[in-house]
């Protein structure tokens, strides 16, 4: 499965590139990622969480990069869901902003993991990546993922409607946290 998405962020390309290149930042806006940890100069360990599939972790390596312009990576070893990605950072015509163009490729397997991944992406798989990039924009432009009473859990707030009512959370809800 191939997914593409793009957004424009009102920050210069070197800054957007630097944020992405620090791979530990990816889980702040990519909903399915739990943690990314650098294990070397170009290698890293990625962990995804439910509902993407529990306890899915894999190694990845950067296969190509041009500072300020492009990063390409792919999973290595026996990843449950072999995947690869490329992101381009292109200065926008306004002279201030950066266009971010992302291409992700997933090699979805059979079996339980494949089913979980298919269920996660649902009928509109591109929507997940669109929403990831919206959050990237929020984080870079405003400092954090924006929350509302209806969608209080940041990147965990995947359902847009119906969601919880637009009224403040009770202490119990706040203590319990997001569903999944």
């Amino acid at each position: 499965m191939e997914l593409t998405a793009t957004t424009t962020i009102r920050k210069p390309a070197p800054e957007v590139y630097a944020f992405w290149r620090r791979l530990e930042n990816l889980p702040t806006f990519m909903a399915h990622l739990e943690e990314v940890r650098a294990t070397g100069d170009r290698t890293s360990r990625w962990a995804a969480r439910a509902p993407f599939g529990t306890d899915v972790a894999w190694d990845a390596e950067i296969t190509d990069e041009t500072p300020g312009e492009k990063i390409a990576w792919r999973s290595t070893g026996d990843a449950d869901v072999p995947n690869a990605g490329t992101v381009f950072f292109v200065p926008a015509p306004d002279g201030v902003s950066t266009e971010v163009h992302v291409l992700l490729t997933y090699d979805i397997p059979g079996g339980a993991v494949g089913k979980a991944v298919a269920k996660y992406f649902g009928e509109e798989p591109h929507q997940q990546l669109d929403d990831d990039l919206r959050r990237l924009k929020q984080v870079l432009e405003t400092g954090e993922v924006v929350r509302s009473d209806g969608a209080p859990w940041g990147k965990r707030a995947r359902q847009e409607f119906p969601q919880r009512p637009a009224q403040p959370l009770s202490d119990a809800e706040l203590a319990k946290g997001a569903d999944a």
């Binding site: 929507q127 929403d131 924009k137 432009e141 993922v145 924006v146 209806g150 707030a157 847009e160």
Partner: peptide, 10 residues
């Protein structure tokens, strides 16, 4: 505003 709506998708 491009950032203030968490339900921008709908």
């Amino acid at each position: 505003c491009e950032n203030s709506n968490p339900n921008a998708g709908i």
